[in-house]
Amino acid sequence: MSELSVNHLLGIKYLKKKDIDLIFETADHFKEVINRSIKKVPTLRDITIANIFFENSTRTKLSFELAEKRLSADVINFSASQSSVKKGETLIDTVNNILSMKVDMVVMRHPNPGAGIFLSKNVKAAIVNAGDGAHEHPTQALLDSYSIRERLGDVGGKKVVIVGDILHSRVALSNIFALQLQGAEVKVCGPKTLIPKYIESLGVTVETNLEKALQWCDVANMLRIQNERLDISYFPSTREYTQQFGLNKAMLKRLDKEIVVMHPGPINRGVEITSDVADSGQSIILDQVENGVAVRMAVIYLLASKIK
């Protein structure tokens, strides 16, 4: 039986193409499962998973929890604000305390880049990175690629533009790595202030004109402006941002092709995307959410099978 080349899912950059293929094949199976009347399999009855979120999250946490429960794993949730950790307990101690209660796997979201990697070197459990600062959000990128594959048949050879706040986005970074690994071309688009100066060293191109970027692409992945991460003003106003980088129906109509529109959520309707685009047939935003559960089931299942 094939297995993943890694024992943790810390970032897409640590995966091989065959890992992604395996995750997707496994996710295909689980997608079928979650569309049955009994949406659950008993596979991970002997596995206990801790979801540790040091940063707020609604959809990712729910998606992981659902994925875990549909695999029949035992699930515990732990939310800690950064400030409670600052009271004194280190990350390693916090997690080791939880692991002492015989937990096999940790799904962690953390505000610091590399926190998952740090943890994987210092505790004995399989780690799934559910987002670490502006570093990676691997399951999001996997479900995004899975959704492109589902809609367009294949990710290889496709042109994908990621629009918005690239500078503070772990979703952008993981997507770049995942798409390139599968042979897609990637462009990023947004105000220069929100694009890392050295982004082209990752093999992506930069476009600051949204219309031009849309003309080029097969898929547009619209990111949210991460207001909570902006330490200074990177653009004068949301209104002006929307004028330049908001995707609306008129723009889509002007294209000579039908592109696929994605968004990792949560959507700021009327800012980076208008309602009529978000709710249109070109949008696969809700498919992404559904696929998120199947892909996370696949990741957890494959990592758990390595524990055994």
Binding site: K13, P113, G114, D132, G133, A134, H135, E136, R170, L173, P196, K197, Y198, I199, S201, L202, D231, I232
Partner: peptide, 18 residues
């Protein structure tokens, strides 16, 4: 600003502020 490592390909890849 809040940079902690050299700004370049490495900081971009790691999501660390440059």
């Amino acid at each position: 600003g809040k940079g902690i490592v050299n700004e370049g390909k490495v900081s971009t890849t790691l999501g660390l502020k440059g």
